[in-house]
Design a protein around this nucleic acid. Sequence first.
DNA 1: CCCGCGACATGACTATGGTCAAGCGCACCA
DNA 2: TGGTGCGCTTGACCATAGTCATGTCGCGGG
Lengths: 234, 234
Amino acid sequence: MTHERQKAIARNSLLIRSLPEQHVDALLSQAIWRGYGRGETLFLQEEKAQAIHVVIDGWVKLFRMTPTGAEAVVSVFTRGESFGEAVALKNMPYPVSAEAVTACEVMHIPSSVFLSLMRRDPEIGISILASTFGHLHSLVAQLEQLKAQTGAQRVAEFLLNLCDGGDGTCEVRLPYDKMLIAGRLGMKPESLSRAFARLKDAGVTVRRNHAEIADIAQLRDYAESDPAESWSKG
Amino acid sequence: MTHERQKAIARNSLLIRSLPEQHVDALLSQAIWRGYGRGETLFLQEEKAQAIHVVIDGWVKLFRMTPTGAEAVVSVFTRGESFGEAVALKNMPYPVSAEAVTACEVMHIPSSVFLSLMRRDPEIGISILASTFGHLHSLVAQLEQLKAQTGAQRVAEFLLNLCDGGDGTCEVRLPYDKMLIAGRLGMKPESLSRAFARLKDAGVTVRRNHAEIADIAQLRDYAESDPAESWSKG
DNA sequence: CCCGCGACATGACTATGGTCAAGCGCACCA
DNA sequence: TGGTGCGCTTGACCATAGTCATGTCGCGGG
């Protein structure tokens, strides 16, 4: 991938796109561009944040290690998504660790660059708040899912997000391996297998990393139905 | 409560305290002060946000209603805590609803006030980002808890937060009713009862809204132990 | 080409927590 | 003072998901 292509992707990222046009070139030219191999660490929980990160290509996961060694996946980002905005600007310690789950390209914008620009144009702060609000929102959505849905329903929503829009049939490719999907959805790989099995009679067929949804509307019904009544239809 | 006392509490709130001194009076004088009765709604999910909210007294819960009518409590705020920062400044729809769970006093700062001040002093944007980061962080912590701990362990951590510091014995008052505690911790009231029962042999005695912790260090151990090994000690 | 490893599926068993129903105690109120 | 309602607890039962063990498939290395 050429650097020009990388810059084009960066410009199109949610974060950069919402910034005032005139500052974008300055930011991009001061960014640090780096590739990571699968499994490589971007940063560790408790480390002091010094940059905002924009994924250019590949997949990055954010996760927490519990005291007992279990890993809780908080989110998974790909091309055009950014993270670490709020923490970088306050020079605080990261609440999560970040790791490349596939080989990937990441742009790092040093927080000092952002800060000095921000002092000249307050609109930039507002843009960053918008990004941060997006993360807040997605965490709230995850919380709701964990508290109010069964595993199979969370998998259903995950699939729906992959093909969003329309309500006919649809084929999607699972973007990363099932171990990670399971973690992202708060379950063990075994449970994910069983959740897929259960989704068979909601019209979902999974083979390898390839899922076929017979009827999106039907699957959406399943995802939002009351867990208590699903068994009665079994 | 006098208005002077209310202003003093507001000045001491996490949000206001982190703002540059010289703008505080201007902000406070333009704020809207209001009391709410138990059960009263502050705002509804999907409503457009037009203010930042600071709790002066009492308790406020943020929650989401799922399509099926179940309620997922996202957070519970009290004196000195604020919410809605990021969403207000972007004039976005609230991702959650807010309701007074006790009679309470709330200060509302119209987002227009904040915005105009922010355009004059970019430091304010940074302060707000700090608050927002705090919320982000607490949501991440909740996610980790839900994904990696049993109900009883979440209750243990909840108790530990109420008496934090030290490692001897400790008595705490449960700040709101058990229905709400259960919701906040992602379980049903019945499960909360059983969780308390289970904590008896971790040295916790609960009577009414009053909990006695025999040994904080022991309880901390319990909260962080591997769920898989807890039964073997049964 | 076969071996072996790791991802994934499946089965058996268990623990955790939700649901339903019954019962208790405390507060509010006529 | 004796309802009456609600918050809370308890027990029985069951669905959901974690654990452990076993088996299969696909892929890369020797």
